[in-house]
Nucleic acid binder design. Sequence first.
DNA 1: ACAATGATTCAACGTTTCTAGAATAATAGA
DNA 2: TCTATTATTCTAGAAACGTTGAATCATTGT
Lengths: 110, 110
Amino acid sequence: MEIREAVQRLGALAHETRLSVFRLLVRRGPLGLPAGEIATRMGISPPNASFHLAELARVGLVTAKRDGRSVIYSVDFAASLGLVDYLKENCCAEEVVPVVPLNSITRRKK
Amino acid sequence: MEIREAVQRLGALAHETRLSVFRLLVRRGPLGLPAGEIATRMGISPPNASFHLAELARVGLVTAKRDGRSVIYSVDFAASLGLVDYLKENCCAEEVVPVVPLNSITRRKK
DNA sequence: ACAATGATTCAACGTTTCTAGAATAATAGA
DNA sequence: TCTATTATTCTAGAAACGTTGAATCATTGT
C-alpha cells in the first residue's frame, strides 16, 4: 500500500463517529446495513451519516450498493486487512536498520 | 484500548509527514533520533518537526528524552502494537454478529 | 557571564473539516 | 402521476489543523 492511501484510510478512521460506524459494519459482516439504519443506530442525523459514510467509501474502506430505496453499506475487508498489514510492517518492526548517513542530506551545494 | 485513544493515535498517523517521521523512528529502533536530525532528514523546518513530534508524543506513540542539548525521540513499540491489535480485533473480524434490534433504538417515548 | 547550539513556543495566517438544516434526488407503491 | 420513503447534496458558520518566521528556553563550553 502507498503511504498516501494509508494516510487517507487512517484519517477516515481517525474520527470517533466514523470509527464507530466502521466497527458496526465490521460486526455486521458482508450483509451490511442501510444508511438510514446506520444513522438511527449511531444517533446521528441522516445527512451526517451520509457525510461520514461517503468519506469511508471515498478511501475504499466500505462499499455502497443500492437496494430499492435503501443504500446498503458494507466493509471492504480486503482493504481493511491491507491497512492493518501496512501498519504491522511499517510500525511494529522493532529493529535497528542503518539509515543513510546524515551528511548525504546536509551536504548540499553551497 | 479505548476508542478515544485509538482515534487519537490514528489521527496522529493520518498525516504524511507524521507517518513518515514515525516510520523513520521505527526503522531506527530503540536508539531513536534527535529532533534536529529528524527535521533535516525529513526536509522540514525544526519548528514544524517539533510540532509533529509533539503530537506523536502527546498520543503516546513516541517518547522523548533529553540528552545534552538534543532531545531524542523514539517509538513506543508497546503502544504501536496496541493500536495494530485494536485494528485487527475491531476492523478485520469478518463475521456476522447479531446486532441489537432496531426497535429498541427507534421506540423512544412519544 | 557570554556565546553557540539544539529545540520549543508563540503569533499569525490560510486551509480543511465538521455539523446542522434546507433543498434536492431516487425509488416504490397507490 | 401523486405521495411517502430513503438518501444525498448544498449552504453556511464554527472549530480544528498545518505552516512559517521570530522569539524564547535549555544546555554546553569558554
